[in-house]
Nucleic acid binder design. Structure first.
Length: 880
RNA sequence: GGGAGCAUAGCUCAGUCGGUUCAGAGCACCUGCCUUACAAGCAGGGGGUCACAGGUUCGAAUCCUGUUGCUCCCA
């Protein structure tokens, strides 16, 4: 059958993916082999594949496939994350399109819609991963809200509550007035905005015209002021001691407090204090026992407590109150000002600091062992520089606000009695049992239906942090065979931006619940950016559609393109050229296969001597590269491992080896050379399989008839064998000769088809190494190679290292040009020598440098001297 | 404001113990080739004051100090 000269991934990829699935080649069950396990960082259930996922999952797949071929029992657990805020926002938006408001639905009705939406749209991303070639064990697919995983989260909540690590407290939280929920510090993004700094004067109580001027960017919070604060050493405010200040517009008297917190240089040096609406003011408020007046409603409008503008939005009020203050003579001036404002990562709404009752998890005790495990390299970070970041965060960790005012998620298992107290339990019934114990001595009667469950759900990360355990049901059944076999997992491949959200917390949970690390290594990938270095995002429209890319170029090409330029922890600047390189590489391998497969084998002919050399040489190069590749893998230098493989195939196998043994046109090849060539190809595609799963499987099946269910992904990786460095070095020299001859042909316009003769001048006292002569002859189309003792006239000559070569070219010699070139080279070599001599004549160098270094310099000196001698001799002979 | 990191060829990056594997790779570029596996290819080639300024050393891309510029994290 004729094979197309261009590799067509479309004909291949789906075929092999179905084959792998049909034969359950990705499925893993515990057995006696060594386990190798990765749990996928679960993408949002509503997500669609983007370039970041492509990179991340390609890396995971490379590691999985390599481990599988190394004979390990490899298990890659896929799954999705319910992503409370993001998913709820999407469902709300969808309902809104249908004319339904969330506020018109009960919790249960809403959840029904949400699940329906999840079943319809959720998990698309997992199907997309299949296009990429991901070798996940799909029978183990998990979702963070599956029954078992849900129960695990609740169980952990109750456990931590009972250990006293979870508490309920009044705290200032980051409030999202649009989503009507608290969001964690990590979900707030700060951006610089142009705003105004209002200088407002407050009347000092008991005076008619004495004022204090403060500067604020948020005049709408004035109505919630409960103090004015100045620096205790600030002379200009000393007279305010014991005075009251009147809040403008509402004339409420407030005290003056003195605190070193105030920056005397900023604004006027006097600060208004609004404990309900600013985190620093809140802290001042606690310290000075100030009243807290919350002037905002949950949705960001003014509350009754504000007394003015009630029900109007905070940003409208900012403008209106400025006008009103102006009218009443309180505005001193207004300046333009740039400050940083927090936005909700999910809804883009301006975050409002707000006092509310939330659930918290104490972090100090959990953080300590988690910090040690990374510090002492029990868990290794790649690259290690992220250890610094991790340490800094872990040493400054604050309690984790784990409640969210949402419906989609794990509902907090707290049950409230009519009197406002609560118990924590898995179910209403269990809660009621606790209640009965609690109120047994009281007269009041509480019925089971009086219990009200907390309305809030848990932060999404409160389920994610259990992921490596809960996918194996290790929380509920800590001794089941899966968790005992697969945990701890081997690698975590993720982005550095979630080192605190997720990585740190998984380490904490792992230690708390299994006294064991969750993974041994963490490999941090970079962010995929566009050519201009911008982060890829939907709003910029600069992200290519991954599935289109796969459809156009094939998954293998994309995997290669992305991997080639993504060293661990470095951002990847995406460029179509990368994929082109991947695609071209596919084609190269494809054609190598076509060539080898097309050869006619003859049992009659003997193996030519040069083929024997070629095979010995390539076997050595192969094993040498293999060793390099293995080291690169152990160092997590994936892109370098791929590049080494790429060069081994393209340069060494295709450009050199195949050319060395290639029979003349339409001539057959001997059996042994043929077996060697196909044998090497077989080894190479195995080596390449983790990077390029599809084309290698296709070639694997073309090279040989295979049994049903047989697959390259179950074959062993090639094993590094000892190799002969000597033959590798010999060939490096030979290749320099070949390149020099090719240059002569090019410069003199001698066609490759015209055979030429080569004379080699034997070096005095040296035995000539003729190992590669046959190969040089073949690759350069030489009609003869002769060794001579004296230089040959009427020839072009060139020097490789310190050996002189001659090629007779008849009348084509241009003596003057040659002399010029030789002189140039002579000049360079003399310069080189003088630099070497500078070192060797330096006594301190001889005295202090290691012997090996001095020896190396001496060798350089010798080489340069003999080279200069040859060059000088050539000039005289040319002139003569 | 606090912390971390980076700066090497046009681009993306290697460069481990300071020294011949020290100035490298891939891509891009230039030149010549449709040579019977591959033009998605072959052969050959050019290109860097290692951000800047000092210092340590026999010797610095590499170690130290400062300067400039950029990135990220936290507040």
């Amino acid at each position: 059958m004729e094979i197309a000269s261009k590799y067509n991934p479309a004909l291949v990829e789906d075929k092999w993916y179905s084959y792998w699935l049909k034969n359950k080649l990705f499925h893993s069950e515990p057995d006696s082999r060594e386990p190798y396990c990765i749990v996928i960082p679960p993408p949002n259930v509503t997500g669609v594949l983007h370039m970041g996922h492509m990179l991340n999952n390609t890396i995971q797949d490379v590691m999985m496939r390599r481990a599988r071929m190394a004979g390990k029992n490899a298990c890659w657990v896929p799954g999705t994350d319910h992503a409370s805020i993001a998913t709820e926002a999407k469902v709300v938006a969808k309902l809104k399109e249908d004319g339904i408001r969330k506020s018109d639905l009960t919790r249960d009705q809403f959840l029904l819609h949400a699940w329906e939406w999840k079943h319809k749209h959720g998990g698309i991303i997992l199907d997309q991963l299949k296009k990429l070639g991901a070798s996940c064990d799909w029978e183990r697919t998990c979702f963070t809200m599956d029954d078992g995983l849900y129960d695990s989260v609740i169980k952990v909540f109750i456990d931590l509550y009972e250990k006293g690590l979870i508490y309920r407290g009044v705290r200032m939280v980051n409030w999202d007035p649009k989503a009507l929920t608290a969001v964690s510090d990590e979900e707030v993004v700060y951006r610089e905005v142009n705003s105004k700094l209002y200088y407002v004067r407050y009347l000092i109580a008991g005076t008619s015209d004495e004022w204090v001027t403060i500067a604020t960017t948020r005049p709408e919070t004035i109505l919630g002021d409960t103090a004015i604060c100045v620096h205790p050493e600030d002379e200009k405010y000393r007279h305010l001691k014991g005075k009251k200040i009147m809040v403008p517009l509402i004339n409420r008297p407030i005290p003056v407090i003195f605190d070193e917190y105030v920056d005397r240089e900023f604004g006027t040096g006097a600060l208004k204090v609004t404990p309900a609406h600013d985190i620093n003011d809140y802290k001042l408020g606690i310290k000075h026992q100030l009243e807290v007046i919350d002037t905002f409603n949950a949705n960001g409008t003014m509350s009754e407590a504000a007394r003015l503008f009630v029900g109007e939005d905070r940003f409208t009020v900012r403008k209106k109150i400025a006008v009103e203050l102006e009218k009443q003579g309180h505005i001193v001036k207004i300046e333009n000002y740039t400050n940083k404002v927090g936005y909700s990562e999910r809804t883009e709404e301006v975050i409002e600091p707000r006092i509310s009752i939330q659930w918290f998890l104490k972090m100090n005790e959990l953080a300590k062992p988690a910090l040690d495990l990374v510090e002492n390299d029990t868990i290794r970070f790649h690259p290690a520089k992220y250890k610094n970041m991790y340490r800094h965060w872990m040493e400054n960790v604050t309690d984790w606000c784990i409640s969210r005012q949402l419906w989609w998620g794990h509902r907090i298992p707290a049950w409230y009695l009519p009197d406002g107290t609560f118990v924590v339990a898995r179910s209403r019934e269990e809660a009621f049992e606790q209640v009965k114990l609690k109120i047994k001595n009281q007269t009041s009667e509480v019925k089971i239906e009086d219990l009200k469950q907390d309305e809030d759900v848990l932060d999404t990360w409160f389920s994610s942090w259990l992921w490596p355990i809960s996918v194996f049901d290790g929380i509920r059944n800590p001794d089941n065979p899966d968790i005992r076999y697969y945990y701890p997992t081997n690698e975590l491949i993720t982005a550095p931006e979630i080192i605190f959200f997720w990585v740190a917390r998984m380490i904490m949970a792992g230690w708390e619940y299994r006294k064991e690390i969750p993974f041994r290594n963490v490999y941090f990938t970079g962010i995929v950016r566009d050519k201009l270095g911008r982060k890829m995002s939907k709003s910029l429209g600069n992200s290519p559609e991954p599935l289109d890319l796969i459809a156009r170029n094939g998954a293998d090409a994309i995997r290669v393109g992305m991997l080639l330029c993504s060293p661990a922890g470095n951002d990847l600047l995406y460029d179509d050229g990368l994929i082109e390189q991947g695609r071209n590489f596919c084609n190269k391998i494809w054609n190598a296969m076509r060539l080898v497969r097309g050869w006619q084998v003859s049992e009659e002919i003997d193996q030519p001597a040069e083929n024997k050399i070629a095979i010995a040489w390539f076997a050595s190069v192969f094993n040498s590269s293999l060793q390099t590749i293995q080291n690169q893998f152990s160092d997590y230098r994936l892109s370098e491992a791929l590049m080494t493989t790429y060069k081994l195939i393209w340069d060494d196998y295709c450009s050199w080896f195949l050319e060395m043994i290639k029979p003349a046109y339409q001539q057959p090849i001997d059996r042994r050379s043929y077996e060697a060539a196909t044998g090497f190809l077989d080894q190479l595609i195995r080596l390449l399989h983790p990077f390029m799963p599809f084309i290698t499987e296709e070639i694997f099946h073309i090279l040989k008839e295979r049994e049903e269910g047989e697959s390259i992904l179950l074959t062993p990786q090639p094993e590094a064998k000892p190799f002969n460095q000597g033959i590798i070095d010999q060939f490096i020299f030979a290749s320099e000769v070949i390149i020099a001859i090719r240059n002569v042909r090019k410069e003199r316009n001698i066609s490759f088809k015209e055979p030429i003769a080569l004379f080699i001048k034997k070096n005095h006292g040296e035995e000539a190494d003729t190992t590669f002569d046959g190969i040089i002859g073949k690759l350069c189309n030489l009609k003869s190679i002769s060794y001579i003792d004296v230089k040959s006239p009427g020839c072009i000559s060139f020097i490789v290292r310190s050996t002189e070569f001659f090629i007779p070219v008849g009348d084509q010699i241009n003596a003057e040009e040659d002399i010029l070139k030789i002189e140039e080279e002579l000049l360079y070599t003399r310069g080189f020598l003088s630099k070497v001599m500078l070192k060797l004549n330096n006594e301190s160098f001889i005295k202090n440098a290691p012997v090996a270094v001095v020896e190396a310099e001496r060798k350089k000196q010798q080489d340069a001297i003999s080279r200069i001698a040859v060059l000088e001799e050539r000039i005289t002979s040319q002139k003569g």
